[in-house]
Design a binder for these strands. Structure first.
Length: 242
DNA sequence: GCATCGATCGGCT
DNA sequence: GCCGATCGATGCC
């Protein structure tokens, strides 16, 4: 992974991050994800960017060189992270919104509070007793003894899909919080690293960024089409007045 | 100072 | 689909 790739215009950098791998190592172990969904934020030209109104203590990392990690805290409980892009001094960044866990699956599951396959009925033919729910009236076993119905529908076919589906989940799966802010992702011994990975050859899908009030019309979200780990689109919703 | 609301998520209806 | 949680950055008086 070369820093010069990240130093270009953020709208060119963002799609290039698709298919790249972010790997994080803590005392608990290593988790790596292949990035499947990102959003571009173009600093002073972009009302949706945290850097739109100039540099603050929170946003100072974005004003530094490309390839560093900008982590921020939001909604009183979540962390989200960006890869700083563009040349030194230009505060553009790419929000990492989702990925597929490709290493450290068990650790990622534990951090996200997902049961391991051994602990649950996921993907097993015989559900444990606690997962069995009462059938609604009218539901009967088929002649083969298989009950279609709420139980089968409530258990997702692939729970691992959700491990890093969404920017805050991605941070949890990788064990990244405040202390990740400012880390140089291209440094040789950094605890969090951006690696070339398999890359992505196809044409990314694009659309408006998720949950923004301002500049909601700019199609600066990029994702790998048909990838199940991409998060669902949500428009901005104004809060209700008391 | 104080009020507002967010680059969200999980639980519940 | 709707709602509440929870805190820090920002903006207005």
């Amino acid at each position: 992974m070369r820093r010069s790739i990240l130093a270009g215009p953020v709208l060119e950098v963002a799609p290039k991050l698709l298919g790249m791998v972010l790997r994080s190592t803590t005392e608990d172990g290593t988790v790596a994800v292949r990035l499947t969904e990102v959003e571009a934020y173009d600093g002073p030209n972009d009302p949706g960017s945290h850097a739109y109104r100039g540099q603050t203590a929170r946003t100072e990392v974005m004003f530094g060189p490309p390839g560093h990690l900008y982590v921020y805290f939001t909604y009183g409980m979540h962390f989200c992270m960006n890869v700083v892009a563009g040349p030194d001094g230009k505060p553009s960044a790419v929000l990492l919104r989702a990925g597929e866990v490709v290493e450290g699956l068990d650790l990622a599951r534990a951090r996200r509070g997902h049961p391991t396959p051994q602990q649950s009925a996921f993907n097993q033919s015989t559900p444990r007793q606690a997962d069995v729910r009462e059938d609604p009236p009218g539901v009967r076993p088929t002649p083969a003894g298989i009950r279609p119905g709420p139980v089968a529908k409530r258990l997702p076919a692939n729970p691992d899909r959700d491990l890093a589906r969404g920017p805050a989940r991605l941070c949890v799966a990788l064990g990244i919080g405040r202390e990740g802010n400012g880390v140089d992702l291209l440094a040789k011994n950094a605890p969090i690293q951006l690696l070339d990975g398999p890359g992505y050859d196809g044409v990314p899908s694009t659309g408006p960024r998720v949950g923004l009030r301002d500049a909601a019309d700019r199609p600066w979200r990029f994702w790998i089409p048909n990838d199940p780990t991409v998060s669902p689109y949500r428009p901005h919703v104004p809060k209700k007045r008391p």
